[in-house]
Design a protein around this nucleic acid. Structure first.
Lengths: 229, 229
DNA sequence: AGATTGAATTGATAAAAGTCAACCATTGAA
DNA sequence: TTCAATGGTTGACTTTTATCAATTCAATCT
């Protein structure tokens, strides 16, 4: 067990955690491999575990009356869903893998217990949670303040910059997932790409080329209070 | 000073905080009365103070490219904006009073310092922050999963239930603010009220009467993972 | 009372986004 | 190699929401 748990010892969340506290946290924890499309948690269930992604990709989503909306995607090192764990309340979102994923699950009780005894861990938890909060606020601003085409433009620009402004790059998510993330239908994502041709983007299959970064930025108007990482 | 600061000693946030820690928190704090429409903080500024509302009402909002969106309204005992204070990062939202308000401002440094030394306070902070996080998630689900009329119906139903199902009640926010909160124009709020007449609601001025609670609930389909307080 | 102001409502119209259906391209299995 | 299956695209159309303009309404002040 310990070699596997070791995989997460170096996460920022545990950076300053004492060995003893880390032991307590991982004693009841287990690591599990999930296939694609596995539903990890379902909204409304009690939050028995804090989940941490070791590898793969997880979608958080929510449903009501037969409708479904994607809240976010998360990759390695991300936690979910911390707030439910802390408050010992039901999950507000469901989670599913969208590729083969390796997940560590730590019993919520242990998280809460260590939180009480280890100030450094407490601080990490708060920092993590505050980051999650700010992430949701940014996502919400993105949805409420921008049109669908503007969201697409900013998404592409963000990817482009994160990758170091390469000549061209590959979309890491399928288009229908990008559409879900950006709160629109796949059809409208397609139409958005078409509009953005005139603004300096060419999308061919999974490959994106930013032909006019300034032009795109002029249209997208990225903002650190919405788009910062 | 101490009599004024005393006003917040009993807040849940400080319920388990030691007197010493409370002293540290409030030493550099000050209480201030603001008139209606005072802008308390502006997004992008550094988070120098944690704000706590003693009385009155505060709107959190955000702008981009000349557009503006309301994120939430908060009344007595609410804090804002904790996440920025914790992370020592710029505010992602602006805040303004919408009525005469009494606000206590605690230097962010002090909050972070006490957080490190007082485990009980740390726990309160985390609980508060987790609650804020869940609040934003619910608001986001409300916006993304429901039509404007459904949001209105749920808003009315929630008010109705919170007040103990009275024969009729008064809207505590102006209609244009309700519209902003629910992410729609005042015009569409009006049209929504008209539609809801058929579902068992009558709105006359500021007064609301739920004539058919079951009928309204059948339409609104309230859900604890979106609408719970 | 009359005038003034801001909010709320209503109707006409426009824009944005979603739906539906058809079709295309790619992939992988029989 | 053909044939599903899937994801993506396109066009026509519908629905939802926003915008703009014109009133109406209500509260307040003089």
């Amino acid at each position: 067990m310990h070699s596997r748990i070791q995989e997460i010892r170096d996460l920022p969340l545990f950076a300053t955690t004492s060995d003893e506290a880390f032991q307590t946290l991982t004693r009841g924890a287990y690591v599990q491999n999930f296939p694609t499309h596995a539903e990890l948690i379902t909204e409304g269930e009690s939050a028995d575990f804090l989940h941490i992604i070791i590898s793969g990709c997880v979608e958080l989503f929510s449903a009501w009356q037969g409708r479904e909306t994607t809240m976010s995607f998360h990759g390695p090192d991300a936690t979910f869903i911390l707030a439910a764990t802390i408050k010992d309340r039901p999950y507000l979102m469901s989670a599913r893998t969208i590729e083969k994923s390796r997940i560590i699950m730590i019993p919520s009780e242990d998280v809460r217990a260590v939180f009480e005894t280890d100030p450094d861990f407490a601080k990490s938890i708060v920092t993590e949670l505050a980051g999650c909060y700010r992430g949701v606020i940014k996502a919400s601003k993105n949805i409420k303040l921008r049109s669908s085409t503007e969201r697409i433009a900013n998404y592409l620009l963000k990817s482009y910059n994160a990758l170091g402004k390469p000549k061209d790059f590959t979309l890491e998510l399928e288009k229908r997932r990008i559409a879900a993330l950006l709160g629109m239908t796949p059809e409208n994502l397609s139409r958005g790409f078409a509009v953005l041709k005139e603004k300096g983007v060419s999308v061919r299959g999974q490959t994106v080329r930013i032909t006019d970064p300034e032009g795109l930025a002029k249209f997208a108007k990225p903002n650190r209070l919405i788009d910062s990482w």
